[in-house]
Design a protein around this nucleic acid. Structure first.
Length: 496
RNA sequence: GGUUCCUUGGCCGAGUGGUUAGGCACCGGUCUGCAAAACCGUCUACGGCGGUUCGAAUCCGCCAGGAACCUCCA
């Protein structure tokens, strides 16, 4: 592939040229949700970030296998190796089967992702559907000597691993200190060290989610699913592993340790991490209780929201910040995004309906247009810098609007070039789309009625009957229509 | 306490050792019967103190404030 995509590799803390292992194939694994509650704004970020990457890699011509897992077992509350399973707890509270919880929230997650125009991944494996693979993975780690069994559970031996390899290379932690300082204080009987993490947990009698294994009736540790399913579908070595920055330690650190212990080599070439969404400067998170679900955004039904926000506004809001920066949520910021997105989309419509100037009319916009396009491509190549790309799109918006106002000139070739630019970057790569306005045949009559009214208003205006013309406009406005007077007559649309 | 990171104008948010980011808001103008929309233009910046440099908001140090991870979180 001929491209110059650079991505920031958390493993080396720098941007690196992206070179796939087996071009034209690219393996991409992203940590998906634990399905025990509705998706919130924070879930939208990795989904959209890696959707952008997925779309761009496809555009570059790669055959991408995108795996995004569903965690439906093994994710415990409070401590990695203590506490109740999140899904099981929800099931107990709601008095339903754990798999009912999983199915219910998974359906809702899919619906939210579709609204956000996030492409479905190639494979969406469930942890509970890969218990056998996870058991096999544990056996390999045991055989290699980096795990031990203790009262029916199996733990990863971090201290031993750290002697041969470096535990903490991704997160930059010095585990030796951790081991030394916590060893004595640790009250947990089963584990040799507090830093050790569970690969397999023996199920307590009241535990409702458990499977047979060589060690006990139990369930797999949380970190294991990604190692097992990632290598199953993408191979023992694959290109990109993504997820939220909060997963860097311990989750991704443990994944590396598991892979190296079981397979003797590192699995992932590029680690990518999206930053958090903050609210009043503090992380928005499930456990912090300050999150807003995506449904609440769509309905506006939350005390922090002044109005509903569409899925595309959310998507645009997220894309307006670089994925490695925190992004601070506020209703005000979302209103700004909503208006900006509207302006971008309007400009596209304007562009399509633009009457081209004669080719013989000289203008100097060829250079400007190629600069905009070149800079936009460079931006996305530079570690997916969507905010810069968007700023370039707005430069194009400016040009388009100026052409409409006849202060700039665009010929047929330039219009075509700009349209291709928008089609590719706005719709295909950034994944923005028109809000669904069902202009079906059913609406045909209604649209003609509005046109009729506005034509009557034109007549009234011609007769300088301002009372009638204002009455039509004001009443349509009150109903939610936006009326624009133009040189040619009028334009209208229905807001929301 | 340990590790890592951040601090940009009214708000959100890029970027950078010397050249307009962009969006939203505000203000002035063009257009309009009046508006809206659109267009043009103006205005608010790089936390504080030192240092390196011809030049730093950009590099270094210190200080202040904030955040993330070190327990589950995208």
């Amino acid at each position: 592939m001929d491209h110059s995509l650079k991505i920031y590799n958390t493993l080396h803390r720098k941007k690196e040229q992206f070179v796939p292992l087996n071009s034209p194939f690219v393996g991409l694994y992203v940590c998906g949700p634990t399905v025990y509650g509705d998706a919130h704004l924070g879930h939208a970020r990795p989904a959209i970030t890696f959707d952008l990457l997925f779309r761009y890699l496809i555009h570059l011509g790669y055959k991408v296998r995108y795996v995004r897992n569903i965690t439906d077992v093994g994710h415990l509350e409070n401590d990695a190796d203590e506490g109740e399973d999140k899904v099981a707890k929800k099931a107990r509270l709601d008095q339903v089967e754990p798999m009912e919880v999983v199915q219910y929230y998974l359906n809702r997650y899919h619906k939210a992702m579709e609204a956000l125009n996030v492409l479905p991944p190639s494979i969406e494996p469930h942890a509970s559907g890969h218990i056998i693979e996870q058991i096999e993975f544990i056996k390999k780690i045991l055989d290699a000597g980096y795990a031990y069994e203790s009262e029916g559970s199996v733990y990863f031996d971090v201290e031993k691993y750290n002697k041969d390899h470096r535990y903490g290379k991704l997160s930059g932690r010095n585990i030796e200190e951790l081991l030394n300082t916590t060893r004595i204080l640790d009250g947990q009987q089963e584990k040799h060290h507090s830093a050790d993490f569970a690969l397999w947990k023996k199920a307590a009698p009241e535990h409702i989610m458990h499977w047979p294994s060589p060690w006990s009736e139990g369930f797999p540790g949380w970190h294991l699913e990604c190692s097992a399913m990632g290598t199953k579908y993408l191979g023992e070595q694959f290109d990109i592993h993504g997820g939220g920055m909060d997963l860097l330690f311990p989750h991704h650190e443990c994944e590396i340790a598991q892979s190296v212990a079981a397979l003797g080599k590192e699995t992932v070439h590029y680690w990518m991490h999206n930053n958090m969404i903050t609210i009043n400067g503090t992380k928005m998170g499930k456990s912090l209780g300050n999150f807003i679900t995506l449904d609440e955004f769509f309905t506006g039904n939350h005390s922090l929201l002044t109005q509903p926000f569409s899925a595309m506004t959310i998507r645009f809001f997220i894309l307006q910040a670089h994925y490695r920066s925190t992004i601070d949520f506020s209703s005000e910021a979302l209103v700004a995004s909503e208006k900006g997105l509207q302006r971008l989309m309007e400009a596209y419509k304007t562009l399509i309906n633009l009457t081209p100037d004669n080719l013989s009319i000289p203008n100097t916009n060829d250079q400007l247009i190629s600069e905009i396009i070149e800079d936009g491509k460079k931006a996305i190549d530079d570690d997916l810098n969507s905010p810069i790309l968007i700023s370039k799109l707005f430069n194009a918006v400016n040009l388009i609007n100026s052409a409409k106002a006849k202060t700039e000139s665009l010929n047929v070739n330039q219009i075509k070039t700009l349209k291709d630019f928008f089609d590719l970057y706005v719709f295909k790569i950034l994944g923005l789309k028109e809000e669904s306005s069902e202009s079906t045949a059913n609406n045909e009559a209604y649209m003609q009625v509005v046109d009729l009214l506005l034509n009557m208003r034109i007549e009234a205006k011609a007769n300088k009957d301002w009372a009638t013309s204002d009455k039509i406009r004001n009443q349509l406005t009150a109903l939610g229509f936006v009326i624009k007077d133009t040189k040619e007559g009028f334009e209208w649309k229905l807001e929301k």
